[in-house]
């Protein structure tokens, strides 16, 4: 958790007007695990370690919103030690974090803008996700004719699966109240966290790179840059956005030939139809555990048909 800034007295500082007044209707999502005593009773694996736990809240980036102007809200998930939650493609097991929004009329929420994931291996089965202090950013656009005055409440139902050696599903109904008034600005209290969260997002692929892939026995992804230096010291790993395209648990063989980096990706055996798109995140500094890769790029390779 090198990127987290822990705020232990956060609840005491919550009671302010404007966007930062996060209200939490559901705190720790232990409820469902407590409803399943049978899971833990009578088994020989009962250990000292408590089940994985996740604390969820919504954090708004600005102190007040301006009608018609998009702003950012984060779903912040703080996992207990060693537990992880899942990326949009969870890999060979697991389930992605999801958010159901309940917003005032004509407010629109975008999709989660996913940070670059890390890999988690349990018993040789690899999944993609995040651990520690996880910030998932979502853009929200209020209607242009919104009138200044009473604050609005942004409400969401967040769902996740948290796994360590055991998995516990969690959900929380969380909300944040946002002032509607001119002169809204970034909330200084959370600005460093939002900056840090943005540094975790994959960057746009440099314009001078070219990305293409072929679909055959396996998938090969080739990136070409004007200089071979782009791949120096890289330990690449490719995370496709779509589930069930590659075997997440398979090693990805990489080769650097001239200015090109080629990754061979094992196709999922559950994939019966042709792969026509392979958008994803290329991590050049990859590791199997958090913190995730920092040199990560959004890649939309074009399909190259074989001659």
């Amino acid at each position: 958790m090198t990127y987290s800034i822990t705020r232990r007295n956060v609840v005491l500082r919550r009671l302010r007007s404007g966007c930062a007044a996060a209200k939490r209707l559901g705190r720790f999502a232990l409820l469902r695990s407590l409803l399943f005593p049978a899971i833990f009773a009578g088994t020989s694996w009962v250990a000292a370690a408590p089940p994985p736990r996740v604390d969820a809240r919504l954090v708004c980036e600005v102190t007040a919103i301006t009608p018609g102007e998009a702003f950012w809200v984060a779903l912040r998930l703080q996992t207990s030690e060693d537990a992880h939650v899942y990326w949009v493609n969870p890999g060979d097991a697991g389930m992605a974090v999801s958010i159901e929004w309940k917003l005032p009329a004509r407010f629109e929420a975008g999709d989660i803008v996913w940070p670059a994931p890390a890999r988690f291996s349990t018993g040789g089965i690899v999944s993609f996700g995040f651990s520690g202090d996880v910030w998932l950013l979502v853009p929200i656009t209020p209607p242009a004719d919104l009138t200044a005055g009473a604050p609005v409440r942004l409400e969401a139902q967040a769902h996740w699966l948290a796994c360590r050696d055991v998995c516990v599903p969690g959900e929380a109904r969380i909300s944040v109240d946002v002032a509607v008034e001119p002169g809204g600005r970034r909330d200084p209290e959370w600005a460093p966290e939002f900056d840090q969260a943005r540094r975790r997002l994959p960057a746009a692929m440099p314009a001078e790179w070219k990305a293409r892939f072929t679909d055959g026995e396996s998938l090969t992804l080739t990136l070409t840059s004007p200089s071979s230096g782009a791949w120096a010291g890289a330990k690449p790993f490719y995370y496709p956005f779509d589930e069930g395209v590659i075997e997440a648990s398979a090693a990805q063989e990489s080769r650097i030939i001239g200015n090109s980096l080629t990754l061979t990706l094992k196709k999922s055996k559950y994939r019966s139809n042709a792969v026509t798109a392979l958008d994803g995140v290329l991590a050049l500094d990859s590791s199997e555990a958090a913190p995730g890769p920092l040199r990560a790029f959004l890649v939309k390779p074009t399909l190259q048909r074989k001659e």
């Binding site: 060979d92 097991a93 697991g94 389930m95 349990t122 018993g123 040789g124 089965i125 999944s127 796994c163 050696d165 998995c167 589930e243 069930g244 999922s268 055996k269 559950y270 019966s272």
Partner: peptide, 12 residues
């Protein structure tokens, strides 16, 4: 005949 399985990882 094949679909991607979903769930917890097998705890090998």
């Amino acid at each position: 005949p094949t679909t991607p399985p979903y769930g917890c990882s097998v705890k090998y």
